[in-house]
Computed example of a mutant assay.
Amino acid sequence: MLRFKSLLIILLSALFVASIALQVAANDDDNDEEVPVSDVPAKVLQAANKAVSGGEVTKVEKEVEDGEVIYDVKKVVDGVSYEIEVTVDGVVKKVEKGEAEENEENEEESAKVWDFQKEQVGKIAEGFKSYRTGKGKLGVWKVLVASENKVLAQVSKENFGYHFNLAVAEGTKYSDLKLNVKFKAIEGKDDQGGGPVWRYRDANNYYIARANPLEDNFRVYKVVDGRRKQLASKKLKVTNGEWHTIGIVMQSDHIQCSYDGVPYLDVQDKTFKSGKIGLWTKADAVTYFDDLKVAALGGKTESKMEAEKDEGDTVKNVEKEDEGEDDDD
């Protein structure tokens, strides 16, 4: 009888230990915690972007594996999903490639891309035209060969202060869109960097998002009647001499801006309803641009919008800024 009780105690103890182990294992499987991209360590994002360049970060989860903190970074690049496991110190442990998402595939089919590889060196890319906002001469936009790759560059160093250089894709017109472009800041004493323009009405009315290595910030603006008004700003490290990507998604009045695949800026504004797209630099900033890509969202194709009236695009009662008041100081 005593032996039976001892065996029973041992058996019950084993079952208890096993249940605890199963519970711990279950907790380990369920310990994934979604983390806002803004709270993810810079080393983690940099490592993920280096492992899988381009695209957008759509979700980040944090988990603990064998006592080690792991970030699971999910990205979508050209319609294909990726999961990158990165340690808190920025060490990439695993990269998994998923399947293309159906809606992303549809966007890719309707996307228009400028990679400038067939363009004539020394001239502005075909279909683009140079404009300026503010005082001074027109910027100088030309196709260059950089590291055996053709890029569209703004190379003038003559302008300073409140002067914006624009290269506008004349044959375009978009309302809701998804827009991406790569840029490399080369030099500039007064300013550096640049970014994309969208819903461009004319040289004095448009939206612009840009990153500036001299100030280490990423901002989105609207330019109304030639006056620039800041809509949102994010302080972050912006390096020159390296390629970075700026992404824009705008639907109705909702603007989302990402830098190197990470969404940083999220604002609402209904000043402009549609317009052209293009590229932008300020003052003496020498900047290279490549792989400009745009896709219409929500079925708003260019041909459909050509039939729409431009009612509502007239700007009224918008707060104006004196020149330089909203500059990049």
Rank of each mutant, 00 (worst) to 15 (best):
A48L: 09
D89E: 05
V57L: 02
E102H: 10
K62W: 11
A153I: 09
V40Y: 02
V37T: 14
G55N: 09
S130Q: 09
E56C: 09
V60L: 02
G139A: 06
G134D: 06
V80Q: 04
G90L: 05
N103S: 12
E61C: 05
V88A: 11
V80C: 01
Y82C: 00
E65S: 11
K97C: 07
W114R: 12
K129G: 08
K50P: 03
E109Y: 13
I70G: 02
T58F: 01
V143M: 06
L45M: 06
E85N: 02
D115W: 07
E85G: 01
G136Y: 11
S147G: 05
G54E: 08
K129H: 14
E148N: 10
V88P: 03
V145P: 02
W141S: 13
A42V: 13
K142M: 02
V40N: 03
R132P: 02
K59W: 02
K62E: 14
Q117V: 15
V60N: 01
I124Y: 09
G134M: 04
V44I: 07
K75F: 00
K93S: 08
E96I: 00
V143G: 03
D115F: 08
L152M: 14
W141I: 08
E105L: 15
E107V: 11
D72W: 05
K129C: 06
A47I: 05
G122S: 11
K137D: 15
E83S: 00
W114G: 07
V121N: 06
G55F: 03
A47S: 06
S147C: 03
L152H: 15
G98H: 03
V44T: 07
V44H: 09
K43Y: 08
V140L: 03
K43M: 06
A153H: 12
K93D: 03
A111M: 10
T133Q: 13
P41C: 13
E148T: 08
A48D: 07
V40T: 06
G122K: 13
V69E: 13
L45E: 03
N106G: 14
W141Q: 09
D66Q: 07
V143K: 08
K123P: 10
F116S: 13
N49F: 05
W141V: 12
V151W: 06
S110I: 14
V113I: 15
V80D: 01
V91R: 04
N49A: 07
A100P: 15
E101D: 15
A125T: 10
D115P: 10
